[in-house]
Amino acid sequence: MTVSAQGVAREGVIDLSGGAGPLVSQRWLTERLRDPSVRLVEVDVDPKQYAAGHIPGAIGLDWAKDLQHPTRRDVPEPGVLAKLLGERGINERHTVVLYGDSANWFAAYAFWLLKLYRHADVRLLDGGRSKWLADDKLPFTTELPSFAPETYRIGAIDLSLRATVAEVLPLAVAASARAGARTHAGADAGAHAGAGATSLVDVRSPDEFSGKIIAPPGLNETAQRAGHIPGAISIPWGSAVNPDGTFKTEAELRKLYIEDKGVRANAPAIAYCRIGERSSHTWFVLRYLLGLRDVKNYDGSWTEYGNLIGAPIDKA
């Protein structure tokens, strides 16, 4: 079977042997469903999915209610997140395995959030919810887990994983200036950022990148202006996954992100999208599947940048 063959190959490449890596297979998880050191957590785009059924023992977290600051636009405060996780039976020593719908889209956001607060051992289930659902032999239930409350000792926020507008704006201004220099002095003059320069990866849809639309239809969170951050590379987040929701192989990802699209392998990278969730998925790809050392998620993303007065914007 190609799927399992690919899984084995990937485990070899990024050292998942023995379950040491951040991306785990269904088999790895089925062997640990009753392991008291493991807590399985489902985070969906649509929370109705968890209520309709989930992997036995999975704790359901709602990305909008549980994993956002209730008032300001921000991640939850550490005390609030620690209380929530503790109440649901999770402590900071647990191996937390995340999965969700839409190819782990919001599960990857939860992964980033837990890493932001320095949770030591976080994993992502390859293929997420849909691949598990597709296999009738794997258990599935509506029964809610009941773990005894724990005390979760949360770490200080790790700013090396989070880009702010203060970091992004100078990159945009510099890229814009380089493009201006090219226009005035010919294609070769000062055209390219240096080899060590930060790669900006825009993971939104091509129409959002080009500025044809500001946001996908029907979404409330939007911006005043359409387009993308100057210098950004367009790689829609879904390019990283197969139709069954599993991640592509390390070789395929390397070809796409680094060889074809020009993400610099030995330089910092920043991923952004519209509200900072889709980009968590790409952040995971760049940091853990391609092994880039310095990768940040710009969670302000387009709904912050596209509202800034005077910020340079590129279209098309």
């Binding site: 309709a52 719908d101 190819a103 659902l133 879904g238």
Partner: peptide, 20 residues
């Protein structure tokens, strides 16, 4: 932001009810 070829939310949710 649908993924090409991926099951959409409605199919997944219906399958969930049937599986669970």
């Amino acid at each position: 932001c649908p993924l090409p070829g991926a099951e959409d939310g409605a199919i997944g949710l219906a399958r969930s009810h049937a599986r669970a």
